[in-house]
Protein backbone atom coordinates (compact mmCIF):
# COMPACT_ATOMS: atom_id res chain seq x y z
CA UNK A 1 0.00 0.00 0.00
CA UNK A 2 2.86 2.28 0.86
CA UNK A 3 4.16 2.40 -2.71
CA UNK A 4 0.72 3.61 -3.82
CA UNK A 5 0.47 6.36 -1.22
CA UNK A 6 4.03 7.59 -0.83
CA UNK A 7 4.20 9.47 -4.16
CA UNK A 8 1.07 11.38 -3.16
CA UNK A 9 2.87 12.79 -0.13
CA UNK A 10 4.40 15.30 -2.52
CA UNK A 11 2.12 18.19 -3.31
CA UNK A 12 3.30 18.37 -6.94
CA UNK A 13 2.32 14.72 -7.36
CA UNK A 14 -1.17 15.40 -6.01
CA UNK A 15 -1.62 18.18 -8.56
CA UNK A 16 -0.16 15.99 -11.30
CA UNK A 17 -2.57 13.17 -10.41
CA UNK A 18 -5.59 15.47 -10.43
CA UNK A 19 -4.57 17.01 -13.76
CA UNK A 20 -3.84 13.65 -15.41
CA UNK A 21 -7.14 12.18 -14.25
CA UNK A 22 -9.19 15.10 -15.52
CA UNK A 23 -7.35 15.22 -18.82
CA UNK A 24 -7.47 11.44 -19.24
CA UNK A 25 -11.23 11.36 -18.78
CA UNK A 26 -11.94 14.48 -20.85
CA UNK A 27 -9.79 13.39 -23.79
CA UNK A 28 -11.32 9.92 -23.75
CA UNK A 29 -14.86 11.30 -23.76
CA UNK A 30 -14.33 13.85 -26.53
CA UNK A 31 -12.25 11.24 -28.35
CA UNK A 32 -15.38 9.14 -28.94
CA UNK A 33 -16.55 11.73 -31.46
CA UNK A 34 -13.03 11.99 -32.91
CA UNK A 35 -12.99 8.23 -33.55
CA UNK A 36 -16.57 7.93 -34.79
CA UNK A 37 -16.22 10.84 -37.21
CA UNK A 38 -12.74 9.73 -38.38
CA UNK A 39 -11.17 12.97 -37.20
CA UNK A 40 -7.98 11.46 -35.75
CA UNK A 41 -5.74 13.24 -38.23
CA UNK A 42 -7.61 16.47 -37.65
CA UNK A 43 -7.16 16.18 -33.89
CA UNK A 44 -3.43 15.66 -34.31
CA UNK A 45 -3.22 18.60 -36.70
CA UNK A 46 -5.12 20.86 -34.33
CA UNK A 47 -2.82 19.95 -31.48
CA UNK A 48 0.23 21.01 -33.50
CA UNK A 49 -1.46 24.07 -34.90
CA UNK A 50 -1.84 25.66 -31.46
CA UNK A 51 1.94 25.84 -31.13
CA UNK A 52 2.33 29.38 -32.57
CA UNK A 53 -0.13 30.76 -30.01
CA UNK A 54 1.72 29.01 -27.22
CA UNK A 55 5.02 30.35 -28.52
CA UNK A 56 3.77 33.94 -28.67
CA UNK A 57 2.39 33.69 -25.13
CA UNK A 58 5.73 32.23 -24.04
CA UNK A 59 7.73 35.05 -25.63
CA UNK A 60 5.41 37.65 -24.08
CA UNK A 61 5.69 35.84 -20.73
CA UNK A 62 1.88 35.51 -20.69
CA UNK A 63 -0.09 32.45 -19.56
CA UNK A 64 0.63 29.62 -22.04
CA UNK A 65 -2.88 28.19 -21.80
CA UNK A 66 -4.44 31.50 -22.75
CA UNK A 67 -2.19 31.67 -25.80
CA UNK A 68 -3.09 28.11 -26.69
CA UNK A 69 -6.79 28.83 -26.18
CA UNK A 70 -6.78 31.76 -28.58
CA UNK A 71 -4.92 29.92 -31.33
CA UNK A 72 -6.94 26.72 -30.85
CA UNK A 73 -10.24 28.53 -31.42
CA UNK A 74 -8.69 30.25 -34.44
CA UNK A 75 -7.57 26.92 -35.86
CA UNK A 76 -10.95 25.27 -35.24
CA UNK A 77 -12.72 28.04 -37.14
CA UNK A 78 -10.02 28.03 -39.84
CA UNK A 79 -10.34 24.30 -40.51
CA UNK A 80 -14.11 24.62 -40.67
CA UNK A 81 -13.77 27.38 -43.25
CA UNK A 82 -11.08 25.66 -45.32
CA UNK A 83 -12.98 22.40 -45.64
CA UNK A 84 -16.19 24.21 -46.57
CA UNK A 85 -14.60 25.74 -49.66
CA UNK A 86 -14.23 22.34 -51.29
CA UNK A 87 -11.36 23.36 -53.58
CA UNK A 88 -8.95 21.09 -51.73
CA UNK A 89 -9.64 17.78 -50.09
CA UNK A 90 -9.98 18.24 -46.36
CA UNK A 91 -6.99 16.13 -45.34
CA UNK A 92 -4.77 17.96 -47.83
CA UNK A 93 -5.86 21.34 -46.46
CA UNK A 94 -5.23 20.15 -42.90
CA UNK A 95 -1.84 18.72 -43.86
CA UNK A 96 -0.69 22.07 -45.22
CA UNK A 97 -2.04 24.09 -42.30
CA UNK A 98 -0.68 21.75 -39.68
CA UNK A 99 2.92 21.64 -40.90
CA UNK A 100 2.99 25.40 -41.43
CA UNK A 101 1.68 26.15 -37.94
CA UNK A 102 4.12 23.70 -36.36
CA UNK A 103 7.02 25.33 -38.21
CA UNK A 104 5.91 28.82 -37.21
CA UNK A 105 5.70 27.73 -33.57
CA UNK A 106 9.15 26.16 -33.63
CA UNK A 107 10.61 29.20 -35.42
CA UNK A 108 9.23 31.48 -32.72
CA UNK A 109 10.43 29.35 -29.83
CA UNK A 110 13.87 28.90 -31.42
CA UNK A 111 14.54 32.60 -30.84
CA UNK A 112 14.94 31.89 -27.11
CA UNK A 113 18.05 30.57 -25.40
CA UNK A 114 16.33 27.74 -23.54
CA UNK A 115 14.90 26.49 -26.84
CA UNK A 116 15.35 22.76 -26.45
CA UNK A 117 13.96 22.43 -22.95
CA UNK A 118 10.98 24.71 -23.53
CA UNK A 119 10.04 22.93 -26.71
CA UNK A 120 10.22 19.57 -24.98
CA UNK A 121 7.80 20.75 -22.30
CA UNK A 122 5.33 22.04 -24.83
CA UNK A 123 5.56 19.05 -27.14
CA UNK A 124 5.57 16.30 -24.53
CA UNK A 125 4.09 17.93 -21.44
CA UNK A 126 5.38 18.58 -17.96
CA UNK A 127 2.72 17.31 -15.64
CA UNK A 128 4.92 17.80 -12.58
CA UNK A 129 4.85 21.55 -13.22
CA UNK A 130 1.04 21.90 -13.10
CA UNK A 131 -0.04 24.89 -11.03
CA UNK A 132 -3.20 25.24 -8.97
CA UNK A 133 -4.45 27.80 -11.50
CA UNK A 134 -3.97 25.26 -14.31
CA UNK A 135 -6.02 22.76 -12.31
CA UNK A 136 -8.90 25.20 -11.95
CA UNK A 137 -8.82 26.07 -15.65
CA UNK A 138 -8.81 22.38 -16.56
CA UNK A 139 -11.76 21.71 -14.24
CA UNK A 140 -13.78 24.62 -15.66
CA UNK A 141 -13.12 23.69 -19.30
CA UNK A 142 -13.84 20.04 -18.51
CA UNK A 143 -17.20 20.88 -16.94
CA UNK A 144 -18.14 23.17 -19.84
CA UNK A 145 -17.33 20.44 -22.36
CA UNK A 146 -19.29 17.85 -20.35
CA UNK A 147 -22.27 20.18 -20.24
CA UNK A 148 -22.23 20.79 -24.00
CA UNK A 149 -21.87 17.06 -24.76
CA UNK A 150 -24.78 16.26 -22.42
CA UNK A 151 -27.06 19.00 -23.76
CA UNK A 152 -26.33 18.32 -27.43
CA UNK A 153 -26.15 14.52 -27.17
CA UNK A 154 -28.99 13.99 -29.69
CA UNK A 155 -27.74 16.56 -32.14
CA UNK A 156 -24.12 15.36 -32.07
CA UNK A 157 -25.32 11.77 -32.49
CA UNK A 158 -27.34 12.61 -35.60
CA UNK A 159 -24.69 14.73 -37.33
CA UNK A 160 -22.10 12.04 -36.61
CA UNK A 161 -24.17 9.05 -37.66
CA UNK A 162 -26.35 10.39 -40.45
CA UNK A 163 -25.68 13.83 -41.98
CA UNK A 164 -28.63 13.40 -44.35
CA UNK A 165 -31.05 12.95 -41.45
CA UNK A 166 -29.49 16.02 -39.88
CA UNK A 167 -30.32 17.90 -43.08
CA UNK A 168 -33.93 16.70 -43.18
CA UNK A 169 -34.33 17.68 -39.53
CA UNK A 170 -32.94 21.10 -40.48
CA UNK A 171 -30.16 20.86 -37.91
CA UNK A 172 -27.43 23.47 -38.44
CA UNK A 173 -24.78 20.91 -39.40
CA UNK A 174 -22.01 23.46 -40.02
CA UNK A 175 -22.58 25.11 -36.66
CA UNK A 176 -22.61 21.78 -34.82
CA UNK A 177 -19.45 20.69 -36.60
CA UNK A 178 -17.65 23.91 -35.69
CA UNK A 179 -18.84 23.54 -32.10
CA UNK A 180 -17.43 20.03 -32.05
CA UNK A 181 -14.10 21.33 -33.38
CA UNK A 182 -14.05 23.96 -30.62
CA UNK A 183 -14.69 21.29 -27.99
CA UNK A 184 -11.80 19.25 -29.37
CA UNK A 185 -9.61 22.36 -29.41
CA UNK A 186 -10.43 23.17 -25.77
CA UNK A 187 -9.66 19.60 -24.76
CA UNK A 188 -6.30 19.78 -26.51
CA UNK A 189 -5.46 23.06 -24.77
CA UNK A 190 -6.05 21.76 -21.27
CA UNK A 191 -4.14 18.56 -22.13
CA UNK A 192 -1.06 20.52 -23.20
CA UNK A 193 0.52 20.63 -19.76
CA UNK A 194 -0.12 16.95 -19.04
CA UNK A 195 0.69 15.05 -22.22
CA UNK A 196 1.87 17.83 -24.52
CA UNK A 197 0.70 18.77 -28.01
CA UNK A 198 2.73 15.95 -29.56
CA UNK A 199 0.94 13.20 -27.67
CA UNK A 200 -2.55 14.54 -27.08
CA UNK A 201 -3.89 13.01 -30.30
CA UNK A 202 -3.08 9.61 -28.86
CA UNK A 203 -5.12 10.35 -25.73
CA UNK A 204 -8.00 11.47 -27.95
CA UNK A 205 -7.92 8.38 -30.14
CA UNK A 206 -6.57 5.38 -28.24
CA UNK A 207 -9.03 5.04 -25.29
CA UNK A 208 -12.00 5.79 -27.58
CA UNK A 209 -10.82 3.28 -30.19
CA UNK A 210 -10.43 0.68 -27.43
CA UNK A 211 -13.97 1.40 -26.20
CA UNK A 212 -15.25 1.15 -29.79
CA UNK A 213 -14.06 -2.45 -29.87
CA UNK A 214 -16.00 -3.33 -26.70
CA UNK A 215 -19.12 -1.16 -26.50
CA UNK A 216 -22.26 -1.57 -28.58
CA UNK A 217 -23.89 1.79 -27.87
CA UNK A 218 -22.53 5.31 -27.71
CA UNK A 219 -23.22 5.99 -24.00
CA UNK A 220 -21.45 2.75 -23.09
CA UNK A 221 -18.58 3.62 -25.40
CA UNK A 222 -18.19 6.96 -23.62
CA UNK A 223 -18.15 5.39 -20.16
CA UNK A 224 -15.68 2.66 -21.14
CA UNK A 225 -13.47 5.18 -22.92
CA UNK A 226 -13.45 7.53 -19.90
CA UNK A 227 -12.59 4.59 -17.65
CA UNK A 228 -9.65 3.58 -19.83
CA UNK A 229 -8.50 7.21 -19.95
CA UNK A 230 -8.58 7.43 -16.15
CA UNK A 231 -6.75 4.12 -15.64
CA UNK A 232 -4.09 5.09 -18.19
CA UNK A 233 -3.56 8.41 -16.41
CA UNK A 234 -3.13 6.84 -12.96
CA UNK A 235 -0.98 3.89 -14.00
CA UNK A 236 1.09 6.07 -16.33
CA UNK A 237 1.84 8.59 -13.62
CA UNK A 238 2.97 5.92 -11.14
CA UNK A 239 5.16 4.37 -13.83
CA UNK A 240 6.68 7.73 -14.55
CA UNK A 241 7.35 8.25 -10.82
CA UNK A 242 8.94 4.85 -10.14
CA UNK A 243 10.92 4.13 -13.28
CA UNK A 244 11.61 7.78 -13.97
CA UNK A 245 10.26 8.18 -17.51
CA UNK A 246 8.43 11.14 -19.10
CA UNK A 247 4.89 11.21 -17.69
CA UNK A 248 3.05 12.04 -20.96
CA UNK A 249 4.77 9.19 -22.76
CA UNK A 250 4.06 6.80 -19.88
CA UNK A 251 0.31 7.62 -19.91
CA UNK A 252 0.13 7.13 -23.68
CA UNK A 253 2.01 3.83 -23.53
CA UNK A 254 -0.33 2.46 -20.87
CA UNK A 255 -3.35 3.44 -23.01
CA UNK A 256 -1.75 1.77 -26.03
CA UNK A 257 -1.08 -1.42 -24.04
CA UNK A 258 -4.74 -1.58 -23.00
CA UNK A 259 -5.71 -1.10 -26.63
CA UNK A 260 -3.45 -3.94 -27.78
CA UNK A 261 -4.87 -6.32 -25.18
CA UNK A 262 -8.45 -5.48 -26.16
CA UNK A 263 -7.62 -5.61 -29.87
CA UNK A 264 -6.34 -9.16 -29.43
CA UNK A 265 -8.72 -10.57 -26.86
CA UNK A 266 -11.99 -8.58 -26.99
CA UNK A 267 -15.02 -10.87 -27.22
CA UNK A 268 -16.70 -10.60 -30.60
CA UNK A 269 -14.40 -8.15 -32.36
CA UNK A 270 -10.94 -9.18 -31.08
CA UNK A 271 -8.43 -10.80 -33.42
CA UNK A 272 -8.18 -13.99 -31.38
CA UNK A 273 -11.96 -14.33 -31.21
CA UNK A 274 -12.27 -14.02 -34.99
CA UNK A 275 -9.55 -16.59 -35.57
CA UNK A 276 -11.31 -18.99 -33.22
CA UNK A 277 -14.60 -18.50 -35.04
CA UNK A 278 -12.90 -19.02 -38.38
CA UNK A 279 -11.23 -22.19 -37.13
CA UNK A 280 -14.53 -23.49 -35.80
CA UNK A 281 -16.28 -22.74 -39.07
CA UNK A 282 -13.60 -24.51 -41.11
Amino acid sequence: MDWLLSPLAYEFMQRAMAASLMVGILCALVGCYVVLRSMAFLGDAMAHAILPGVAVAYLLKANLMVGALVSAIGVALGIGLLSRQGTLKEDTAIGILFAAALSLGIALISTTKTYARDLTHILFGNVLGVSTGDLWLTACVGLAVLLVVALLYKEFLVVSFDPILAATLRLPAELLRTLMLIIIALTIVVSMQTVGVGLVASMLVTPAATAFLIARRLPAMMVVSAGIGAISAIVGLYLSFYINIASGAAVVLVATSIFMIVFLFAPGRGVLWRQLRKARAA
Partner: peptide, 27 residues
Protein backbone atom coordinates in the same frame (compact mmCIF):
# COMPACT_ATOMS: atom_id res chain seq x y z
CA UNK B 1 -39.39 21.09 -40.42
CA UNK B 2 -39.96 17.39 -40.66
CA UNK B 3 -42.14 16.94 -43.67
CA UNK B 4 -39.68 14.82 -45.60
CA UNK B 5 -38.12 11.55 -44.47
CA UNK B 6 -35.26 10.00 -46.36
CA UNK B 7 -34.36 6.30 -46.36
CA UNK B 8 -30.70 6.09 -47.37
CA UNK B 9 -29.08 3.51 -49.61
CA UNK B 10 -27.59 0.83 -47.44
CA UNK B 11 -24.04 1.59 -48.55
CA UNK B 12 -24.43 5.14 -47.27
CA UNK B 13 -24.79 4.00 -43.66
CA UNK B 14 -21.87 3.39 -41.29
CA UNK B 15 -22.97 0.01 -39.95
CA UNK B 16 -20.11 -0.12 -37.43
CA UNK B 17 -21.44 2.93 -35.58
CA UNK B 18 -22.28 1.99 -31.97
CA UNK B 19 -26.06 2.41 -32.05
CA UNK B 20 -28.84 -0.11 -31.49
CA UNK B 21 -31.83 -0.65 -33.76
CA UNK B 22 -33.96 1.21 -31.23
CA UNK B 23 -31.50 4.14 -31.14
CA UNK B 24 -31.76 4.57 -34.91
CA UNK B 25 -35.56 4.53 -34.92
CA UNK B 26 -35.60 6.97 -32.00
CA UNK B 27 -33.59 9.41 -34.13
Amino acid sequence: KDCVAYVPQREEVDWRFPVSVFDVVMM
